[in-house]
Design a protein around this nucleic acid. Structure first.
Length: 676
RNA sequence: GGCGGGGUAGCUCAGAUGGUUAGAGCGUUGGAUUCAUAACCCAAAGGUCGGCAGUUCGAUUCUGCUCCCCGCUACCA
């Protein structure tokens, strides 16, 4: 048996800056909920906590854009997210938030303990500071021209136009997003957790869990192999958990420091007994997360807990991969998603259909794809045809022939013993699948009961038997009712709303996981209340509507991306005259070793041959560019990339579809010609 | 380029510490049936398990190389 006597289940804290979609649900909340319901049905001691992560820079930026305070923003989304989860039956024992004072206090205490025990390294680094706003600027608070594509509007960590990852001091013309002023570099002190010092213990910890999923171990080992580096646990920002030290005005805990601590602080709000769930050696901690959170939950948070010394490390971290939507990555900013609140408007009362579909398409081992057509098929050929149909057959037959009373069971024939034999393995198989987080498999196994039910009815034909032997027909239907009841239990973790309906219809008050396989669950004579059809067929036009809805957003996004960018700030002639653009001929080209994007070009400029590195390897082969006359910027300061110096920049025009085109003279002219 | 994940039936995916006919669901085809939401039940067809080599008595499963997809990462002057 398990060496644990209780289980603490967490689901990733979701960032409170937008509504939630099917990807969130499929990623960790649904699997976590299934697991927790499974444990509860076994009467195990389990708690399930999660909440919203409400700190960090993106929320402050969103607040600023909408003219609200960060608190107003997170208050709104906390409510919306919490109610979406509730609507879909995600059965948290406590759903908290990191802006809660309890959480602030708790994470400050955590930080202080590490601080007092000397677990941090203090380091002073240079950061951009906005003098007029009197505060340091986080990466996302700095905007400027992208050093790569030259377009304005790049952020300190990334240019969203060309996708380049940046660091703030690379930006040209950096501007503070707070005041528009040019920021200055100033020293600032932050506290680092020296992950490198924990590398040995972390490695031991990871090695002690060979049973973790390959995607989790793979990513973690990759980090360990590269060697861990100290990571700042504090930030210069006003929105967050203030550092509990003197003279730290304007500094807060790093969101990734305080967020996972939220699991604990939320537990303190759930039960005064919270320490048991986090500190007792016989408590099992299970984190359900998406693959983007693996490193934090498997390395950084464990390192924090090791440094702290009192808390149990995670025993299981079942991380899912990502779910795509109709072949494309789900994206909040591109509005490419099925939002839970919109789904409920379009499919009222059909929470279970989505839960069922998402579970059976769950990205357990690799990225998966949600399509509306799959959704329709799952509903029509499985929920309606297998489960709904079986339940309906049983109820209708009893309503018609036995006045809605469960008939008496009589002697068993070989058909019944076959049936019971077929069911015998199901509980163990179901347990094994659920305990190892194979929810897709588990769902198939749970559905097997209804499949057996349909088969049993087809074989026994009670609608024929009733004409000659009423008692025998009654017995058959008694068996059928027991199967319905067992289905209700086995499917509870997956489709709790339906399970609930069934239990009410059957008048089941007491039930537990061990009743799967029990054929005396519903006593003879019990009056049934036909629940009506459990599921409706979903017709093509309904699905078509959803697909059209998605196509519409897709078209809109394409239109938006095709729109011609705004004209940049006006410049003087002198500014233009500074640029020395010339025509040259590419006489040689080769792919750069170890680079996906760079081509090394040799360009004849009329004076000499110069080397220019250009990021066009994904668009052109070396052979096809040789011999072309192109325009290039001749007086750009040389820059070393991948060990080779680039002397200039090739001018490229970008088409609406992202493809590139050289800017060429329309007749052959002499190399070195200037462009004015 | 580095690191990681994946490439198995028309589709979505399981699986094998190497061993007789490689599995499931959906889809397709044929049959049976009418209690049931044209649902259910039975049966069949369908796979050189990404490619090439190697280890082995034997590989789809192990090793090496290679191609393709996804993610992280460096690189687009």
């Amino acid at each position: 048996m398990s060496k644990f006597s209780r289980t603490t289940v967490t689901a990733a804290l979701i960032y409170a800056n937008g509504p939630i979609h099917i990807g969130h649900l499929a990623g960790c909340y649904l699997p976590a909920d299934i697991y927790v319901r499974f444990l509860r049905l076994q009467k195990k001691d389990v708690i399930f906590v999660s909440g919203t992560d409400e700190h960090g820079v993106p929320i402050t930026i969103k607040a600023q854009k909408e003219g609200k305070t960060p608190q107003e923003v997170v208050d709104f989304y906390y409510k919306e997210i919490k109610s979406s989860f509730q609507d879909f039956g995600i059965s948290f024992d406590f759903y908290g938030r990191t802006s809660d004072p309890v959480h602030h206090q708790f994470s400050q205490d955590f930080f202080l303990k590490l601080y007092e025990e000397g677990k941090f390294v203090e380091e002073t680094t240079m950061q951009y500071f906005d003098e007029s706003a009197n505060q340091f600027l986080a990466d996302r608070y700095i905007t400027g021209d992208c050093p790569s594509c030259k377009q304005p509007g790049a952020y300190g960590d990334q240019c969203e136009k060309c996708g380049t990852t940046l660091s703030p001091n690379e930006l040209l013309n950096p501007k503070s997003m707070l005041s528009g002023a040019s920021p200055v570099l100033k020293p600032t002190k932050n506290w680092f957790l020296p992950l490198d010092q924990w590398q040995g213990e972390l490695t031991k910890y990871i090695d002690s869990h060979p049973e973790w999923k390959p995607n989790v171990l793979g990513q973690v080992k990759s980090w360990l192999q590269e060697g861990l580096r100290p990571r700042a646990m504090t930030r210069d920002l006003n929105w967050g958990v203030p550092i509990p030290l003197p003279d730290t005005e304007g500094k807060v805990l790093y969101v990734w420091f305080d967020a996972p601590i939220g699991y604990m602080s939320m537990t303190t709000q759930l039960t005064p007994d919270w320490e048991k769930y986090w500190k007792a050696k016989d408590s099992q901690v299970v984190h359900f997360i998406g693959k983007d959170n693996i490193v934090f939950h498997c390395l950084i948070f464990p390192a924090m807990c090791m440094a702290h010394g009192e808390f149990q490390l995670a025993d299981q971290v079942p991380a899912n991969e990502f779910m795509n939507l109709e072949g494309d990555k789900i994206s909040t900013s591109r509005n490419w998603a099925v939002w839970l609140h919109e789904y409920l408007q379009d499919f009222p009362g059909k929470q279970d259909v989505l839960r069922y579909t998402l579970t059976s398409l769950s990205p357990e081992t690799k990225d998966s794809d949600f399509t509306w057509s799959d959704f329709q098929t799952k509903n029509n050929s499985e929920l309606v045809a297998i489960l709904g149909n079986f339940v309906n057959r049983a109820f209708v037959l009893i309503d018609k022939n036995f006045d809605s009373q469960v008939p008496v069971k009589s002697a068993e024939s070989s058909l019944e013993s076959d049936l019971m034999l077929a069911l015998k393995d199901i509980p163990a198989k179901l347990d094994a699948a659920l305990a190892t987080f194979k929810f897709r498999d588990a769902l198939v196994i749970a559905m097997e009961i209804a499949r057996l039910g349909n088969k049993y009815l087809a074989e026994t034909e009670p609608w024929k038997v009733i004409k000659e032997d009423r008692e025998k027909a009654g017995s058959i239907l008694n068996f059928a009712v027991q199967l319905v009841a067992q289905s209700a239990i086995a499917l509870e973790p997956f489709i709790p709303f339906t399970s609930n309906k069934l239990r009410e219809a059957l008048g089941m008050s007491e039930y537990s996981w061990t009743h799967i396989g029990d054929f005396d669950l519903i006593p003879a004579g019990q009056t049934l209340k036909n629940p009506g059809l459990l599921f409706d067929k979903i017709e093509d036009d309904v699905i078509q509507l959803q697909i059209e809805k998605l196509n519409k957003t897709k078209n809109q996004m394409e239109l938006a991306s095709k729109s011609v960018p705004n004209i940049k700030e006006t410049i003087e002639f002198d500014d233009f005259a500074k640029m020395d653009i010339r025509i040259g001929e590419i006489v040689a080209a080769e792919k750069m070793e170890k680079s996906k994007k760079l081509l090394k070009l040799t360009v004849k400029d009329g004076i000499k041959e110069r080397t220019i590195l250009s990021g066009i390897a994904e668009h052109f082969n070396p052979e096809e560019v040789v011999g072309k006359q192109v325009s290039f910027l001749a007086n750009l300061a040389p820059r070393k990339m991948m060990g080779i110096e680039s002397e200039g920049m090739i001018l490229m025009a970008e088409d609406a579809d992202g493809s590139l085109s050289f800017v060429q003279p329309d007749k052959k002219i002499w190399n070195g010609a200037t462009v004015n």
